[in-house]
């Protein structure tokens, strides 16, 4: 097991190197640069001299490979650099933002998991019934409905019309209590969790149907076990294997793909940070943000594979 994990970690390294090169060149080769943005920020005339001075201040007067190596060298020493626009070190910014995104992703997962797995199992057990059809309809709607539209819809309904939940932000000003935080989390977590819940439900349903048609289930039923016991004891664990993979992928999606929800709900997370960073050509911020998300994505995949190996012994020896 340890060897398996070690091997997987070593395999991460080339993936990460490629990611950094890719992000770096995408940003630097694309049109637009932070220097003009800074100089033009106040719509005051500026000269080539000003341009050169700011380029030098940002270390952007050096060649691209040189800039890349400097960046990587600093990263290896734990220095993510300084944000061009925020004028402060990126490390603490990433910590703040990651925390917010993790809370949001966790909230979405807490919403999505029971609903997705529960819905999928029920719909499989009641296959063909009106309930199955209803759940399926909700699943299709959940996958098809754009998150930002759902978010705005929830804001208007709960925040503006009924005024029962806050319309955005992570805490109220002057209040940071747990209840206040939970109230702020509900709407964004639902908006973000609906898509994954639907995908998990669909997969659980098909996986459950497949398991239920297996011989050992028929045998269990033939023994005279109650159908609830058959599902709980014999089917559920086997359903979990494929579902787990998808949940892992969904967590990656929740971390990196929460952008729209974060913007609609003014949630100060990674997605918002990276989008603003791209718009402002804040290269070091975008580079660091994408790198962190890539690392998390890879780690989650690793974690899923490890859990996989625990749940299904065959994986370990493959």
């Amino acid at each position: 097991m340890t060897r398996y994990i070690l091997r997987r970690i070593v395999q991460m390294i080339p993936v990460l190197i490629l990611t950094t090169i890719f992000v770096f060149s995408m940003l630097h080769l694309a049109p637009g640069d932070p220097i003009s943005l800074i100089l033009n920020a106040k719509n005051r005339p500026y000269t080539q001299e000003d341009f050169d001075r700011v380029a030098q201040q940002l270390g952007m007067d050096k060649s691209l490979p040189m800039q890349y190596l400097t960046w990587i060298g600093n990263i290896l020493q734990g220095d993510f650099g300084t944000s061009i626009f925020m004028r402060r070190p990126i490390g603490p910014i990433l910590v703040e933002r990651m925390e917010a995104t993790a809370v949001l992703a966790l909230g979405a997962l807490i919403f999505a998991l029971p609903i997705g797995i529960g819905g999928g199992i029920l719909s499989a057990i009641w296959r063909g019934s009106i309930w199955d059809k209803l759940i399926n309809a909700v699943i299709v709607a959940g996958i098809a409905f754009p998150t930002f539209a759902l978010g705005l819809f929830l804001i208007v309904l709960f925040g503006v019309e009924w005024k029962v939940l806050p319309v955005g932000g992570m805490t109220s000003f002057g209040d940071g209590s747990l209840l206040d935080r939970a109230q702020h989390l509900i709407l964004p977590a639902i908006s973000l969790g609906v898509g994954p819940a639907a995908i998990i439900a669909r997969l659980t349903r098909s996986s459950m149907l497949e398991v239920l048609s297996q011989d050992y289930i028929r045998t269990a039923r033939a023994k005279g076990l109650a159908s609830g016991v058959v599902v709980r004891r014999h089917a559920f664990r086997n359903v979990l294997v494929p579902v787990l993979t998808v949940v892992g992928l969904q967590v990656g999606f929740l971390l990196g793909g929460a952008v729209l929800v974060e913007i609609v709900f003014s949630w100060p997370g990674m997605g918002e940070l990276i989008v603003n960073g791209i718009q402002q050509r804040d290269f070091p911020v975008v580079q660091a943000g994408v790198l962190v998300i890539a690392v998390i994505f890879i780690l989650i995949n690793l974690l899923v594979d490890v859990i996989y190996a625990v749940v299904d012994p065959r994986v370990r020896y493959a």
Partner: peptide, 12 residues
């Protein structure tokens, strides 16, 4: 506060 999304600005 810095609200970006136009719909959310109106809602706030």
């Amino acid at each position: 506060r810095g609200i970006i999304e136009p719909g959310a600005r109106t809602a706030a």
